[in-house]
Amino acid sequence: MDTAYADINVVDRLNAEWRWLCDRVAPAREVRGWLIEADVVDERAPHTLDGLCDHLQDRSKGEGPRFSDTWLTVLLERAVAEGDQAQLAARVAVQMMLPAAVRMTQRCLRQGEEFADNVQLVVAALYQVVRRFPIERRRRQLAQGLRLELWHVVSREFGREFSPSGEELPGEKELAEGASVAVDPLRRAEVSLLASAAEAVGLRAPAEPLEELAGPRGELVELLVWALAQKVLTQDAAAAIADHYRDAGAVPDAAAARAAGVSQAAIRQKRRRAVVQLRTAAPLWAAAA
């Protein structure tokens, strides 16, 4: 990740700061004390900050939103206040949400934009969301609520900063009209952002239904959008993969060969090379997500 994202200063700085924070005894002792006091964990909980966060995430995966709501409540109740405790609580919450912020930035990225510039805006929005979250009124599905609030803030900020003409952001029309993606509002928002990014780089036609990007196909397209932004693949290579690997409507090799004026063997060879390049780079994408 350090090599591929050497220019993402804000993410590198946050991760470096987090490693420094995790080497200190006092922050871990304080956060651990909050969680024990709230009966979220007991005395067997890890004594290091990174170990404690890993423990919370592991239990959240096993126990679901009810458990994640308990520890997020502990952090957010303090993060929205003032003072040193608020700063520490907000910092922990931001670090826990940082992968989601990086992933959201990838989905927002449009052709010609720099990831480093956009992620700085998204991280600033994440801090704003954590420090202002209405925890007194919202006590359930907090992780989803944080991501949804972040998406709302980011869409507004990107609209002002990257759409000076005042035009509607790509994907907003589908959301306003209640696009028939059978998922929750957060997932609809994410799918719309991904559709916009894919359309901007030529991997999706405007008429294609959003539902196509709600499943495994969406994960592939997201990876391809990232690969194009990071110059891992050329446009032709990404399109070759996108057109071939579909649940329905895949472009046959014969048709692709006729359109390109080459043999089917050449089409297959180009696709194989692209897949190898993508597999080699995929761990960097996974680490960033």
Rank of each mutant, 00 (worst) to 15 (best):
R32W: 12
R32F: 09
R32G: 13
R32D: 15
R32V: 05
R32I: 11
W34K: 01
W34F: 07
L35R: 11
I36H: 08
I36C: 13
I36D: 01
I36P: 01
E37G: 07
A38V: 01
A38W: 07
D39P: 00
D39E: 13
V40E: 13
V40G: 10
V40M: 08
V41M: 10
V41D: 12
E43V: 14
R44I: 02
R44G: 15
R44W: 13
R44Q: 15
R44D: 13
A45D: 07
A45Y: 05
A45I: 01
H47W: 06
L49H: 06
D50I: 07
G51E: 05
G51C: 08
G51K: 07
L52D: 03
L52S: 05
C53M: 05
D54S: 14
D54Q: 10
H55T: 03
H55C: 08
L56D: 09
L56Y: 12
Q57R: 08
Q57T: 06
D58M: 08
R59V: 05
R59D: 14
K61Y: 07
G62I: 00
G64S: 12
G64N: 13
P65M: 01
P65A: 14
R66D: 13
R66H: 10
R66A: 15
R66T: 14
F67G: 03
F67T: 09
F67N: 13
S68C: 07
S68D: 09
D69T: 10
T70V: 04
T70W: 11
W71I: 05
W71V: 03
L72Q: 05
T73Q: 12
T73R: 14
T73A: 11
V74N: 07
V74T: 15
L75V: 03
L76N: 05
E77S: 03
E77R: 14
R78N: 06
A79C: 10
A79E: 09
V80D: 09
A81R: 14
A81C: 00
E82C: 03
